[in-house]
């Protein structure tokens, strides 16, 4: 198998001038107003194109896109259950591999892409995901991270950030809301030594689409983790979705980077970060937090950023000035 870097040698970037016009995921779905997750999904679909075979986990995006007899999917799509999108995708991939080899279907170059929320990825689906990444199936896994179980009514997941209010991490005299630090899913994916891992935010839609295009271009498994604002679950107005998606990056809370063949590359070096408070203030799920909480979050965000920078340096010995 060739390396990701080799596969991306002649990569044709998506630019504002050549944004794909296709809509594999069509309008008319039932997501909430301002839903950042469905925006991310649409951008992913555009970047992959009409030769996508989509596999969805149970969750918001599955529910809002497929109320029988209507479907928002203009490409082949399958939903099986909540925790198994990666396993289903590996079956689709294995099937096509066998059938193409045996000459029973033609090699149409279709791309297998699995979609799941943060719950379907970091919690109940992590085993199936780890298995599929480890086995090396040629597929792309997209985690649409809205930082809670939204489809079932805003319950916490292991991807819910520290301090956030959800229906199962309510703040009160004995609780600050979510009391644990967000699980670092992209790092877990990267630890599988797969060819390509990336994080993305819909506020940088061209960057997002390019990462997805790279993910489906490299041979073997690829993982793309997309921060996906959910106004309904985060208690903010639909009009601030993109602002939130921008501030989360500018505050270094959600860094944008790629891991190509194990090499960490910052997509955006945030030299002058905004304070995390400015990001937290955009959402009412954090409004119970006091100064001490915010200082704690700021400290951990700083530490995480430093760790990421050291990984960038360690894996780019030449580029390190």
């Amino acid at each position: 198998m060739i390396s990701a870097a080799e596969a991306l040698k002649d990569f044709q970037k998506i630019t504002p001038k050549n944004i794909p016009l296709v809509e594999p995921f069509s309008k008319g779905h039932r997501a909430c107003q301002g839903c950042g997750e469905v925006l991310a999904l649409r951008l992913v679909a555009k970047a992959v194109g009409m030769d996508m075979i989509a596999v969805s986990a149970t969750g918001c995006m599955e529910i809002i896109s497929s109320p029988y007899p209507q479907t928002a999917w203009e490409v082949p799509w399958i939903h099986v259950a909540f925790e198994n999108a990666a396993a289903v995708a590996s079956g689709v991939e294995a099937s096509r591999k066998a059938l193409i080899r045996k000459g029973r279907i033609k090699d149409d170059g279709a791309k297998v892409v699995a979609f799941a929320g943060d719950g379907g990825t970091a919690d109940i689906g992590i085993q199936a995901l780890s298995g599929a990444l480890e086995r090396g199936h040629d597929f792309t896994y997209v985690c649409l991270d809205n930082e809670a179980y939204m489809n079932t009514g805003i319950q916490r997941s292991s991807s819910t950030p520290y301090g956030a209010m959800t229906t199962t991490s309510p703040p009160g005299p004995k609780s600050r809301g979510q009391m644990t630090w967000k699980k670092n899913m992209p790092m877990i994916a990267a630890a599988h030594n797969i060819p390509y891992v990336a994080t993305a935010s819909p506020a940088w839609h061209i960057d997002l689409m390019n990462k997805v295009k790279k993910a489906v271009t490299v041979p073997g498994p690829a993982y793309v983790h997309i921060y996906s604002p959910c106004p309904t679950g985060w208690r903010c107005g639909p009009e601030v979705s993109i602002e939130t998606a921008r501030k989360v990056v500018q505050s270094r809370v959600f860094p944008l980077y790629e891991v190509i063949d194990g090499r960490f590359v910052l997509s955006r070096d945030i030299k002058k970060p905004i304070p995390v408070k400015e990001y937290l203030d955009t959402q009412r799920r954090f409004r119970h937090l006091g100064e001490k909480d915010i200082a704690y979050i700021q400290k951990r965000v700083d530490d995480d950023w430093a760790r990421l920078l050291s990984l960038v340096q360690a894996t780019n010995p030449v580029a390190a000035e």
């Binding site: 399958i78 099986v80 990666a86 689709v92 294995a94 099937s95 029973r104």
Partner: peptide
Amino acid sequence: HSAMSACVGSAAAG
């Protein structure tokens, strides 16, 4: 669980 899930994907892909 993944065995049956992969089988579903496989059979659905023909």
